[in-house]
């Protein structure tokens, strides 16, 4: 004999990931560590920004970076040359990182050996938006070459971010304009911190570090 039984579940689909993310966030806070999630399109300049941040912070802090890409260790190798300890996650097709992927990497190290943690999420403006990795702040990087409508077209990832970085401002001119992106980032979320950078020239990198709440000596 068989019977059909309907079970009322009423549980959030994201609950396992979100509970783990909250656990990571609380653990980092308790240990006085900072953890930031850097998101953005392929080619927006996430890796070069993290290279600049690693160069700037590594004389004063121990920095750990978890890079997410479908394949290769190119990004982790690049940032490692700038003074950070890095690890590369290859998602093999996965379009975003998750709290459990973060936890697996944190389990392999002693958290106390480092001061500041970053993860560079897989490059896209859609999928990473829904998956909390446990960071204290989410940062979205867009470059002015992505077009003036890129923020309007991808509102969700900006809604979940605390900092919007408008990158490649060194090539601002007739063809590329940061004005609309800066305005849209503020309109989409009134408490958004908007930082204009050029990772190439290092413009705005110290402003971004300050927005992250990290103290560094001024450049000489």
């Amino acid at each position: 004999m068989v019977e059909i039984k309907q079970i009322s579940v009423k549980k959030k689909a994201y609950v396992v990931n979100d509970e783990l993310a909250e656990n990571i966030r609380n653990k980092m806070k308790t240990k006085n560590k900072r953890f930031f999630n850097v998101m953005g399109s392929i080619g927006s300049g996430k890796t070069l920004i993290l290279e600049r941040i690693a160069e700037r912070l590594s004389p004063y802090y121990k920095v750990f970076v978890i890079n997410g890409d479908v394949a290769t260790t190119i990004d982790a190798d690049r940032i490692a040359k700038c003074g950070a300890t890095t690890v590369q996650i290859n998602t093999g097709g996965g379009c975003h990182l998750t709290a459990s992927l973060m936890q697996k990497e944190f389990d392999k190290i002693n958290i106390d050996d480092y001061d500041i943690f970053f993860t560079e999420n897989v490059g896209n403006l859609i999928c990473p938006a829904a998956w909390d990795v446990g960071a204290a702040k989410n940062i979205v990087v867009v470059s002015i070459t992505e077009g003036e409508y890129v923020i309007k077209k991808h509102p969700i990832i900006f809604k979940g971010a605390q900092i919007a970085v408008i990158n490649k401002c060194d090539i601002e001119g007739e063809d590329f304009d940061s004005k609309t992106l800066v305005e849209d980032a503020s309109k989409i979320k009134s408490d958004m911190e908007v930082i204009c950078t050029s990772a190439k020239t290092k413009q705005g990198i110290d402003d971004l570090i300050t927005a992250l709440g990290i103290d560094i000596p001024k450049r000489e």
Binding site: M1, V2, E3, I4, K5, Q6, I7, S8, V9, K10, K11, K12, A13, Y14, D18, A129, A130, I156, K159, G160, K189, S190
Partner: peptide
């Protein structure tokens, strides 16, 4: 208009299971 939308409301409501009575 300064509002946040909850983008993670997805909930597993019910599951129908075929059970053995044994």
């Amino acid at each position: 208009r300064d509002t946040h939308i909850n983008m993670k409301q997805m909930t597993i409501e019910t599951v129908d299971l075929e059970l053995s009575e044994e």
